[in-house]
Nucleic acid binder design. Structure first.
Length: 797
DNA sequence: GCAGCCCTATTACCT
DNA sequence: ACAGGTAATAGGGCTGCG
């Protein structure tokens, strides 16, 4: 029997005449694209007997019910665990995975049945979990080639004769063909609507350096563009198809446009259009469709998540070297034959950026996919909680733990971490001591887990219990809990990868992959506490989250006391960090003492040459040895302040912390205000960006960004939850929300400059300078220097 | 009618 | 649609004031 080795790119299943087949889309070692079909996998779910009911009797009743449920193929009683407690369950095998929910409904009516479990696990996920098949991993399968009757776009179709076997030791990636694309939709005014507005440009770039552009002949017909694009995809036959905002926008848009033109957007390897899949992802059978926007959250420094900003941040293409056209300008560039080439250039650059950003993300995406077990095209779209959960589910299967149902629960807040009151002012030589992965360490050290929790009234086991401070939740010391096991597995894996990294050439592809792997592991380990406190978690038990933070508070308070007892001055602290005057010897003793008494690691994370603390918590700035400023929480790092405020604050911090001159800082602010009043500051620096967090009608109060959004909507712009609204404050009378205008509708002469002076620049500067007794009046340039225009005057009245 | 106060809604940050 | 703790602004209601 021939053995085939392949890397798993995508998975789906098909059901014909109630017979399911798993389709595994892969790339073989020698670069062939293959489809492995596996017909031999049963679907199943569990039935839990009501308390006091005999599972054998339940199994018999289900057997009897098979007359009416002909697709049930078998019933067996099995031993499993649920939240660590042994349970005997009835495992019911069923032929057609698409009929499971129907069958569950019938079985729930059988006497003595309490509930069903794992009927909510998709067949393709079930297949991977039970057979330890790993997306983006190499596998070996015994299989025979069969004829490609389904017309799949692959080199070979194989019928599996064995279950594929995962080969964890192979970490290299096959050479994948990646295609990036970027679209231009044309609408004369407002957001383009797929029902009426055509796609006029599609630009394509590939990781092999090919570039293509399809341009509509007229604004009326886009069938040629779409047809050419489909042909292009089929010819290049990408493994990964990637774009920006494609889940929400392009895929559906193109599918609708295709239909309008009597076409089908047949871009998959099987005969189908893109279709909506889990987590709002648009799936393309046989390929991995990746929307780079899904990875934007990995870069919190990028406040406005546009392709150009992300490409700029990652060094793919600097903003300054780019052709940039904003959405509201597209129509005029398309309409004007003279300007159209600029639009085409812009679109092509977008496609290049997409490929460039993809190349910087792919390693992480691949590692995350193989770590948590979600297919490459799904893992980016899945929220953090679901990524953690799929990792847990794989582990649960291995230890015979049943997967609990996702329940609707009311929000139940609990106490979190401690934040110290900072000592305001400038401090020299400050060390920041951090606990190493505090919450995961706590969960492991005190065995905190849903399955080790001892509810009040239950006796303590002979092996003893850990009791959380303040709240007194108890957790049995033995055996190891679910979370504890998962976390130590993760941490051991990460330590091993980091050990391997030391022996590898940092420039090799292998190094990049392993580095991405250790990052993926870190992300999942660090998110586990948050998952445990999430009411949507399958493995949620409130005391678990509550106990973790309680121990966290106890530990940091103990550490602070020890530091003080050692004579270390504690300047500030937040959750798992303490800021002390840098005294390496004492810090060393403290670190030792904490390890001995608390069993946790703490070490200096960074040293500030000088640091400035405001009166407020979570807002400070440190000067690092290399001269850079570490600005935390202040306006300068916030996305919802105008650049004028952020620029000023950064400059003030620099002058204060490096130059140590309050006078120079004050002078700088005054000059800046003068420049602004003379309109020497770019218009763009006056835009304030705020996110819409709900539908416009849902807002209870009038707010500037909401009113600006309504103006945009009135002009035909579609706004979604999560969109950022860029607005400016214009002069006139009334509330701010009456004077906020979308920046695309305003010009410099509309601007209320004094708003920016009083409500942006002055507060941002005073946040720092008030520590040195500087007052608002000190920052305002002398009245004579202010050229009052008639307009300003009228605006004030 | 409005200044001053306080509370709430809203957003974005920190760890 | 991973957690709680926190700062900050703008809006809005209320009080008191010739």
């Amino acid at each position: 029997m021939p053995v085939h080795r392949f890397w798993l790119l995508d998975i789906n299943y098909e059901v014909r005449n109630h017979q399911p087949e798993i389709w595994l889309w892969g790339v073989s070692e020698d670069g062939e694209r293959i489809l492995v079909i596996d017909r031999g996998f049963p679907t199943y779910f569990y039935v839990l007997p009501a308390s006091g009911e005999d599972p054998e009797r339940i199994a018999e009743r289900i057997e009897l019910a098979r007359v009416n449920l002909p697709l049930i193929t078998g019933v067996e009683v099995v031993d499993r665990r649920l939240f660590g407690k042994p349970v005997r369950a009835v495992k019911v095998y069923c032929l057609d995975p698409d009929l499971v929910s129907e069958y569950v409904k019938s079985i729930l009516k059988i006497r003595g049945v309490d509930s069903c479990l794992e009927d909510d696990i998709r067949y393709s996920m079930r297949y991977m979990i039970d057979n330890n098949i790993v997306p983006c991993g190499w596998h070996e399968v015994e299989a025979d080639e069969i004829s490609n009757t389904i017309g799949a776009q692959v080199d070979r179709v194989l019928l599996a004769k064995s279950k594929p076997k995962y080969l964890p030791e192979i970490i290299k990636m096959p050479n994948l063909r990646i295609m990036g694309f970027s679209t231009v939709f044309y609408s004369r005014k407002g957001s383009p609507k797929p029902e009426i507005n055509p796609v006029v440009v599609i630009s394509v770039a590939t990781n092999t350096g090919e570039e293509k552009q399809f341009i509509a002949n007229s604004s009326e017909s886009d069938s040629d563009v779409i047809e050419a694009f489909i042909k292009c995809v089929r010819e290049f036959d990408p493994d990964i198809i990637v774009g920006f905002e494609t889940n929400r926008r392009d895929m559906q848009y193109l599918a609708v446009r295709a239909r309008k033109n009597g076409l089908t957007l047949r871009v998959g390897r099987a005969d189908a259009e893109p279709h909506t899949s889990a987590y709002g992802h648009m799936s393309i059978t046989g390929r991995a469709h990746i929307d780079l926007l899904d990875y934007a959250d990995e870069f919190p420094e990028v406040k406005i998540k546009t392709l150009e900003n992300i490409a700029d941040y990652l060094g793919v293409m600097k903003i300054g070297e780019r052709t940039l056209i904003e959405d509201f300008e597209i129509a005029q560039y398309w309409e004007d034959e003279g300007k159209r080439p600029i639009l085409l250039k812009f679109s092509m650059e977008n496609a290049r950026c997409i490929i460039g950003v993809m190349e910087r993300i792919i390693d992480f995406a691949v590692q995350l996919s193989s770590l948590v077990g979600l297919p490459l095209d799904h893992v980016g779209t899945a929220a953090v909680g679901f990524r953690v959960e799929w990792f847990l589910i794989r582990h649960a299967y291995q230890i015979g733990e049943l997967i609990p149902k996702r329940l609707e629960r009311p929000y139940a807040p609990y106490a979190g971490a401690i934040v110290l009151e900072p000592k305001p002012g400038v401090h020299e030589n400050v060390a920041v001591l951090d606990f190493k992965s505090m919450y995961p360490s706590i969960m492991m050290a005190f065995n905190i887990s849903p399955d080790t929790y001892i509810p009040p009234g239950e006796p303590e086991p002979p092996s003893g219990a850990y009791v959380a401070p303040e709240i007194n939740h108890r957790f049995r010391k033995e055996p190891h809990g679910f979370y504890s096991e998962v976390l130590s597995k993760l941490i051991k894996a990460r330590d091993k990868v980091r050990e391997d990294l030391k022996r590898i050439d940092p420039k090799s592809p292998e190094y990049r992959l392993l580095d991405a792997r250790q990052k993926a592991i870190k992300v999942i380990a660090n998110a586990t506490y948050g998952y445990a406190g999430w009411i949507g978690a399958r493995w949620y038990i409130k005391p678990v989250a509550e106990a973790v933070t309680a121990w966290g508070r106890y530990i940091i308070m103990s550490a602070i006391k020890m530091a003080r007892d050692l004579g270390l001055e504690v300047i500030y602290g937040d959750t798992d960090s303490i800021f002390v005057r840098n005294d390496p010897e004492k810090i060393e003793s403290l670190s030792k003492m904490i390890w001995e008494k608390l069993g946790l690691e703490i070490k200096p994370d960074k040293i500030y040459v000088r640091a400035l603390f405001t009166e407020a918590k979570k807002r400070y700035c440190g000067l690092m040895p290399d001269g850079r400023l570490d600005m935390v929480g202040l306006e300068v790092v916030r996305g919802d302040w105008a650049n004028v405020a952020k620029n000023i604050q950064e400059k003030v911090l620099e002058i204060i912390l490096k130059g140590q001159s309050v006078k120079k800082a004050v002078e700088y602010v005054r000059n800046y205000i003068t420049d602004l009043r003379e309109r020497k500051i770019p218009f763009k620096d006056l835009i304030i960006w705020k996110t819409l967090t709900k539908d416009l009608e849902e807002y209870e109060v009038k707010a500037p960004h909401v009113e600006a959004a309504k103006l945009l909507q009135k002009e035909g712009w579609l706004l979604n939850i999560g969109d950022k609204v860029g607005f400016v404050i214009t002069s006139g009378s009334g509330k701010l929300y009456e004077r906020a205008k979308p920046y695309i509708f305003a010009s410099y002469s509309d601007i209320d400059i004094e708003y920016y002076v009083t409500n942006q620049i002055i507060p941002a500067a005073l946040r720092i300078l008030s520590l040195f007794n500087v007052k608002e009046n000190d920052l305002l340039p002398p009245k004579s220097a202010k050229p009052q225009t008639l307009f300003d005057f009228l605006g004030k009245k």
